[in-house]
Design a protein around this nucleic acid. Structure first.
Length: 576
DNA sequence: GCCGTTTTCGGCCCGACTGTTTTCAGTCG
């Protein structure tokens, strides 16, 4: 049982409690515990086995017992009791913006709505409009929310799908001797969200049944969709579909290439192959010969495949047919930024605000990753719910950082702030306070419903502020949950170019903000990007991987990224 | 439900915004 799973169950209890009419503080307790558990480094099962659950902030006797139940059985009696009072489908309603637990409760009790389908009907036949406190605008907002919910495709975050896929591939390799297995598809191309998981496995003829059986009887399978000798397909309990292709050993390279896609990239390649008298499919590369059998051309690996086509190797992240084929033919593909190029993280939260780890622990963790520097960028005071810093607490933090810089060897902790961009483009802290910071990240956390002009003028205020270095999560989206605020991105890129402002690729898996295409626009315009985690815990530092993926999909090289620079170059570049 | 104490109960990160109100409840970050 993973931390995230325990956390999910606790969050479910919190929602149900609130819908059930319990006081909000009770629900808050569950959410606080859930939040901490999802961020902490230790596996919750280990915490439980050393009998230390109550040492977790926000976990007392009651929640500790429930966590034990959840680890043991996946649920707890308390949850089951709640579910007899409140239908589980009601939780779906909470995904509609502006519809919270009180409203869900009223809809249930006063109109009998138990889920999405019911709500749609109740909106249509006027039962909702007849409720007290439901005017025209509120009904319209619900209708829109419902519509948006339905149109959102059921894709999964890369950060969720990738480890699941890797685990399956690993399992397949251990189920018979000599099996090769690799994750293909959009996961291999590192798209931000993933529809289905594709895995390619190669083995000898006699091992095919073993590989298939291993795949079809693995953990967490909800449904077997297909189970043939070359293609197997399952749906996991979480709803994600996983397709497995089983090929012969000599077909592995071309099969992996084929199922990595994208389709558009392949269509383009096949055209080029045809001109060269070659045919490419999942089974191999073949010489096309008129009137006689096709002759297979041996292909050792993907590099060789591209070489056969007269091209440089195209990394999976670039295979979208957005110019990479032409560039590879002309040997002008950029060399993409690598994990090892990243020398620091410029957007990190500590336990001064809503992070859970101390600056010292974060610094030591960063040093052990081989980083040269990090910036502690806690929230500013406008974010009251996160205990945002005012000038006084910011100074206290600065003093602490000064002393830690003497005691933590091999790493420079930069003093930073993630300052809120307020209405009208004002910063949430005075220039004096910002001037004393080494790194200032400026972000929008409020007024998401501003119009395009208002948003732009706020960002303009930030970019033109001489102390602001980086715009944090520039579009404000949360993947699958919140649309970006209305932003004319090309205009922001132009502005950033003029003011020398860095735009962030926020690596938090549900943000990935900017996205790959905007990163690429930055590169084309000569605007510097930074790849930062926005970590709220030690574990969050690992998310850097997802930011690097975005950068690579955006064609960024080492030189395009601010935090690949050595410390003195970095400071010079941001004018410190 | 947690936590800390003023030790057995009272406060809990809190302010902005919105739609519906006419004085506020609900939602959100």
């Amino acid at each position: 049982m993973k931390n995230s799973q325990v956390s999910q169950v606790l969050l479910m209890i919190a929602d149900l409690e609130e819908i059930n009419g319990e006081e909000a503080f009770k629900a808050m307790s569950y959410r606080r515990a859930a939040d901490y558990i999802s961020k902490m480094s230790e596996a919750i099962e280990d915490t439980a086995s050393r009998d230390a659950l109550q040492e977790i902030p926000g976990v007392g006797r009651n929640i500790a017992q429930k966590i034990k139940d959840i680890i043991g059985t996946g649920t707890t009696k308390h949850l089951e009791d709640l579910l007899t009072k409140v239908p589980e489908e009601l939780l779906e309603l909470l995904k509609i913006p502006g519809l919270g637990p009180r409203t869900a409760s009223r809809l249930y009790r006063e109109t009998g709505v138990t889920g999405i389908g019911d709500l749609e009907a109740a909106l249509k036949d006027g039962r909702v409009a007849a409720l007290k406190g439901f005017g025209q605008r509120r009904v319209q907002a619900l209708e829109k929310g419902l519509h948006d919910l339905g149109s959102r495709d059921r894709r999964h975050l890369l950060a969720y799908a990738w480890p699941v896929a890797e685990e399956i591939a690993q399992t397949l390799m251990s189920c018979a001797p000599g099996v090769r297995a690799e994750v293909a598809g959009s996961i291999r191309r590192r798209k931000e969200t993933v529809g289905d998981v594709d895995i390619v496995a190669a083995c000898n003829e006699e091992n095919v049944p073993a590989v298939a059986r291993c795949f079809l009887t693995g953990r967490g399978i909800g449904e077997v969709l297909a189970g043939g000798p070359t293609k197997c397909s399952i749906r996991l309990d979480g709803g994600m579909q996983v397709d497995l292709r089983i090929v012969r050993m000599h077909e592995f390279t071309t099969a992996l290439h084929h199922f990595t896609g994208s389709k558009e990239h392949h269509v383009h390649l096949r055209g080029i192959a045809k001109d060269l008298g070659l045919k490419i499919n999942e089974y191999g590369v073949f010489k096309e010969e008129a009137g006689s059998a096709e002759e297979p051309v041996p292909v050792k690996d993907e590099s060789e495949l591209y070489r056969l086509l007269g091209m440089d190797y195209v990394p999976p992240e670039m295979r979208e047919d957005t110019g990479e084929v032409e560039a590879a033919l002309e040997s002008r593909l950029p060399s993409l930024v690598e994990t090892e190029d990243i020398l620091g993280d410029l957007h990190i939260h500590s336990n001064f605000t809503d992070g859970i780890d101390s600056i010292e622990r974060l610094a030591r963790a960063a040093a052990s990753r081989g980083y040269e520097y990090i910036a502690i960028t806690d929230h500013s005071k406008a974010l009251a719910f996160a205990r945002g810093l005012d000038e006084e607490r910011l100074s206290q933090q600065a003093e602490l950082i000064d002393s830690l810089n003497k005691s933590v060897p091999g790493l420079r902790i930069l003093k930073g702030i993630e300052v809120d961009i307020l209405a009208g483009g004002k910063m949430d802290l005075p220039d004096d306070a910002l001037r004393r910071c080494d790194v200032v990240v400026a972000s929008i956390h409020s007024g998401f419903r501003n119009d395009q002009e208002q948003i732009y003028s706020r960002l303009e205020g930030a970019c033109k502020n001489p102390h602001v270095d980086i715009i944090g999560h520039p579009t404000g989206r949360i993947i699958g949950q919140r649309d970006p605020y209305p932003l004319d991105m090309p205009r922001l890129v132009d502005l950033a170019k003029k003011t020398g402002t860095v735009l962030e690729i926020n690596a938090s898996p549900d943000r990935l903000d900017m996205s790959d295409q905007y990163a690429r626009a930055c590169k084309q315009a000569g605007v510097r990007c930074s790849i930062d985690t926005d970590a709220h815990s030690l574990r969050g530092l690992d998310d850097i991987r997802f930011g690097i993926d975005v950068a690579r999909r955006g064609w960024l090289g080492k030189d395009d990224v601010l935090n690949t620079k050595r410390l003195h170059h970095l400071l010079a570049e941001i004018g410190k």
